[in-house]
Amino acid sequence: MSDREEHLVGEFPLIPKQERAQLKRDLLLKSGHELFVTNGYEHTTAKEIAAHAGVATGTFYRYFSDKRQLLMSLLENQIEMLMPPEPIWGVSDPESTLASLLESHDKRLKAMGMQRLVPELLAKDSGFAEVLAAGKRKIFTRILSGLKMAYDNDLTWKDLDLNTVTWSMMTLAEHAPEKMKQCGNQTDYHQVAKVICRLIFPPEVIEKLQTDETVTEEEY
């Protein structure tokens, strides 16, 4: 966990050492997760979390300073999972590879069940927004570096600004799960991957990479 993430969580009132106390803390975390996902952050209180866990409100405050600290405890090891996936360029069949990454990312978000809270937190919690933005900047830099390598190997369009391409790719990847709400049909990640790859590679490069994969598979 980074220093920024440690700052987000803060110092706990008590770190349980006995198994029974740890079980109570874990139960509060589970209850908080369920209520945050169901009701949202603003409409969930520490008292409700404690009641849902079957413990007194005072017990909640033995382990957590407030509901924010509990939520950040849930997120502290999962912030990277909220980030857009980081593709590897120049591989065989980049469309299928990226589609697989996007689908896996979507499954992780759904398993977390916390993605609906992110817009709410970004609007209300500057500390969380700063940590998330810093994480995205790191991914942006890594993706841009990979695109520059692909550019140097004559795989990408030569007349496009790579910073803009990187930004466009991250925006599409990040907001792809929202397509269902806006368009009324399920997100097809193969189509999203196709759009992203068309931003990066000329058609003949995509065809060559896909053909190279076919040849490799036949050889083996």
Rank of each mutant, 00 (worst) to 15 (best):
E76A: 12
R62G: 06
F12K: 03
S104T: 02
E217R: 15
S104C: 15
A176N: 13
L121Y: 04
S2G: 14
G146T: 02
L14M: 14
S31F: 11
A193R: 05
V131R: 15
K158I: 01
A111C: 09
G90M: 05
E218C: 14
E48P: 05
E204Y: 13
L8K: 09
G146W: 02
D154L: 13
A133M: 04
L35G: 11
Q191D: 04
I200S: 11
L71C: 00
V131M: 13
L132E: 00
M149P: 13
F64K: 14
V9N: 07
I79H: 11
D188V: 09
L27E: 14
A173H: 06
A50T: 10
N185T: 01
V215T: 15
H175Q: 09
M83H: 11
T44K: 07
E86G: 09
N77T: 14
G184Q: 00
D93T: 05
K124R: 00
R137Q: 04
E19W: 10
E34A: 06
H43L: 07
V195L: 02
Q210S: 08
T214P: 14
L101I: 14
E76K: 03
S65N: 01
K107T: 11
A129C: 12
K47M: 01
R25P: 07
E207L: 15
L14K: 15
G184W: 10
P87M: 01
S92R: 01
S92G: 04
M1K: 12
H190Y: 14
V165Q: 01
K181V: 08
S168G: 07
L82I: 01
R137Y: 06
T166C: 09
P13M: 04
P16C: 09
K148W: 13
G146E: 07
V165D: 03
Y151V: 08
V205W: 15
K148A: 02
A50M: 15
G10A: 12
A53D: 05
T45L: 03
I49H: 02
T97S: 14
A173I: 12
H52P: 06
A150T: 11
R62D: 14
Q191L: 04
M169I: 10
I143D: 05
E207R: 11
G10V: 00
G113R: 10
S168H: 03
M112P: 00
H43E: 05
K110E: 15
A129I: 06
V37E: 04
L14I: 12
F64I: 08
Y151H: 12
L109K: 09
K181E: 09
I196W: 03
E103K: 14
R142G: 15
T44P: 12
T141N: 09
Q191P: 05
L35V: 12
F64G: 12
L117T: 03
G40M: 05
K110N: 09
E204G: 11
I79A: 07
K179H: 11
T59R: 02
Q78K: 03
W157T: 00
L14W: 11
D159H: 12
M149A: 13
K30D: 15
A173E: 10
L209W: 10
H7S: 14
A21M: 13
I139M: 02
R25M: 04
K148C: 04
G184M: 02
